[in-house]
């Protein structure tokens, strides 16, 4: 009961504040607003320029959007990845972002009028230089690693990064995807539900390689001064991933939402994103990246399916994964 009363009091207090300053409600992914996510910095910086109250509401983004439907309370939705935007778009809840896509500095062409990327990265396999001297330089190399190397990956049915891996294999091998998975199977130590469990197994030394991102070494480099955790770069290319921000059409503060989108494209936001989010900025030339970041090794070739292709290929790619690894 105490919590109920507390919740009610918070609600009342929140609505009382609404009378004075406008509120911008932003739905964001769960990791966003913890003090280790970019949320707190965004809130502080944006409130300094908007004369408003930015309120983050976190949770499972896509299910929440679909569950709430027209009752959505958000003005802006932040954190939908490019692989699930099709479903979010189909709700009809989102409006054009109105920003200039040509200002983006992504390694791929981006012309979406609804979803505006605010960061990016690529899937990659991480290794530890103290345990592996020569990392694989291509996907074929990965398959042909010595027999005792063990890799931990995420399940494409329950995790975004796992799904990106399935699409990555699809992009490189196409109809040979299932065969590739079968060849890789002896090296797959196990499959986990989410990225965190996999990564934990890697840092604990249980697995030699882990499916993660090209930006993961940055955390170890800048936050821990540990230069032994690296991403193996493949000549076949790496699967591109981006998180986007979108405006909700039913917003009662459309100008404020626009101001927020403009802020996302601003230098201040873009310069903050790398260290706050451990990902690359979506609209900032490489020579302006924060110190040290341009030294982060990045792939030369980038693979990507837009949302229509991703939706069409998804079931096939996941089934190839499932059958290939089940043999």
């Amino acid at each position: 009961m105490k919590a109920l009363t507390l919740a009610a009091t918070t609600l009342i207090a929140a609505s009382a504040a609404a009378a004075d300053t406008p509120i911008l409600t932003v739905y964001a992914g769960d990791y966003f607003t913890s003090e280790w996510g970019p949320g707190p910095i965004i809130e502080k910086e944006f409130e300094a320029i908007c004369d408003c109250d930015l309120v983050f509401s976190t949770g499972d983004l896509l299910p929440r959007l679909l569950l709430e439907g027209k009752r959505i309370e958000a003005d802006v939705v932040m954190g939908l990845t490019s692989d699930v935007t099709a479903k979010a778009r189909a709700t009809g809840l989102l409006a054009p972002h109105g920003q200039d896509n040509s200002a983006l500095t992504l390694p791929i062409e981006w012309s979406d009028e609804t979803f505006l990327p605010f960061n990016y990265g690529h899937t990659a396999f991480m290794y530890d230089t103290t345990r592996m001297e020569t990392p694989p330089a291509s996907f074929d190399d990965l398959i042909n690693l010595p027999d005792d190397v063990r890799i931990v990956i995420q399940d494409p049915r329950t995790s975004i990064s796992g799904l990106a891996l399935a699409l990555w294999v699809e992009a490189i091998y196409g109809d040979q995807a299932q065969e590739t998975w079968a060849k890789l199977a002896p090296k797959i130590l196990t499959v986990t539900k989410d990225w965190s469990s996999s990564y934990g197994m890697f840092t604990e030394g249980e697995a030699d390689m882990v499916l993660s991102y090209t930006t993961s070494p940055a955390y170890h480099m800048f936050a821990e001064e540990d230069f032994t955790k690296k991403a193996a770069l493949f000549s076949d290319g790496h699967y591109f991933m981006t998180e986007t921000v979108a405006k909700v059409s039913s917003t009662d503060v459309p100008e404020l939402a626009d101001t927020f989108l403009t802020y996302v494209m601003s230098e201040a936001f873009q310069k903050m994103i790398p260290a706050a989010n451990w990902s690359l900025p979506s609209a900032l030339a490489q020579d302006q990246w924060p110190e040290g970041w341009s030294e982060l090794p990045l792939p030369e070739k980038v693979l990507f399916y837009d949302e229509t292709e991703a939706v069409a290929l998804r079931d096939k790619a996941v089934e190839a994964w499932r059958v290939g690894l089940s043999q």
Binding site: D155, R157, I188, L189, T190, V191, R322
Partner: peptide, 18 residues
């Protein structure tokens, strides 16, 4: 899933989660 070593160890609950 984790200790089962891969998609062979898929349970109903995983399908529900998915």
């Amino acid at each position: 899933l984790t200790l089962g070593g891969g998609p062979k160890a898929t349970t109903l609950e995983l399908a529900i989660y998915q």
